[in-house]
Amino acid sequence: MSKTILITGASKGFGRIWTEAFLQQGYQVAATARNIEPLTELVSKYGDSLLTFPLNVNNREDVFAAVEKVHDHFGKIDVLINNAGYALFGAIEEASEQEAKDQFQTNFFGALWMTQAVLPIMRAQKSGHIIQTSSILGLITLPFLGLYNASKFALEGFSETLAAEVKDFGINITLVEPNGYASDIWKNETHSQGIAAYDEIKKINSESGNSGSFGNIEATADAILQLVATENPPLRLLLGKVGLPFVKHHYAQRLSVWEEWAEVSEIAHGN
């Protein structure tokens, strides 16, 4: 039986690639974005299998209305993919109050509102799969992406908790954690107003980066199709060949420091 998939941030990057891959497999897809014009070609090609409409996930009321619209149209929602998001570049000190709030509104609260809106439908169905587009930067951090890192860490925390809460309802949760990809999130950069004191550090950090290790977004389609099709999806799925070695290295460092301070930690227990 064909699945019905609701995906946000579907007009470009991962969202655009995955939307077309689902349609090619015969799935019904509701694809939303702030600007749905780039999806016009897919509407012409796939007709009634594709429902598109504009959605700003920052607006909780609009999110709930959108989920109801999709459910009314297709009669079910088997998979929700929370893919809408962007990255704010800059040092922690450089981020304005509004920039910090905006980063969390989209990357964290947008996913939270979508999740809350779809859960009653999935509970009634006694089945469903919620996929959160996270990042390896929800597991480890990079300099000058502090607010982005934090939003993904928050997404990881609520989604792992959610997985335990909804398992008995037949609902699965997966955090998809791509390493760096040559996608629009890096092309359409949002930068905080700079503070000169960080200029040299940013230069060094930029020169030490390796954009050549970025993955090809088109290559992620098969992995997502497998994820959607499986009956026992993982809680976490890394995308790309760079992520696992990178995360293992950082987690080994964390474990080493925790072990080094273990005696102090145990004394702090008090008995």
Rank of each mutant, 00 (worst) to 15 (best):
H73W: 11
H73E: 15
G75W: 07
G75N: 09
D78M: 01
V79R: 00
L80D: 09
I81L: 14
I81C: 14
N82G: 07
N83M: 02
A84P: 07
G85H: 07
A87Q: 14
A87I: 00
I92G: 11
E93W: 00
E93C: 00
A95D: 09
A95K: 00
S96E: 12
E97N: 13
E99R: 02
E99F: 02
K101Q: 15
K101C: 15
D102Y: 09
D102A: 13
Q103F: 01
F104R: 02
T106F: 08
G110T: 05
G110N: 04
A111Y: 09
A111F: 05
W113P: 01
M114F: 03
M114G: 15
T115F: 05
A117T: 06
A117P: 12
V118S: 09
L119I: 15
M122H: 01
R123Q: 14
A124I: 05
A124V: 15
K126F: 06
S127L: 01
S127K: 11
G128W: 04
G128V: 06
I131M: 07
I131P: 05
I131F: 01
I131Y: 00
I131G: 03
Q132E: 08
Q132F: 10
T133C: 10
T133Q: 12
S134P: 00
S134K: 05
S135A: 06
S135L: 05
I136R: 09
L137V: 04
L137Q: 14
G138P: 00
G138D: 06
I140T: 12
T141D: 14
T141F: 11
F144C: 03
F144I: 01
L145A: 11
L145V: 02
G146P: 06
L147F: 13
N149L: 04
K152A: 06
F153Q: 07
F153N: 01
F153V: 05
E156Q: 14
E156H: 08
F158Y: 14
F158V: 10
S159E: 12
A163Q: 12
A163I: 08
A164P: 13
E165R: 08
K167L: 15
F169T: 12
F169A: 07
G170A: 08
N172A: 15
N172V: 04
I173N: 08
I173Q: 02
T174C: 05
L175S: 04
V176F: 02
V176N: 02
V176R: 02
E177A: 10
E177F: 03
P178W: 06
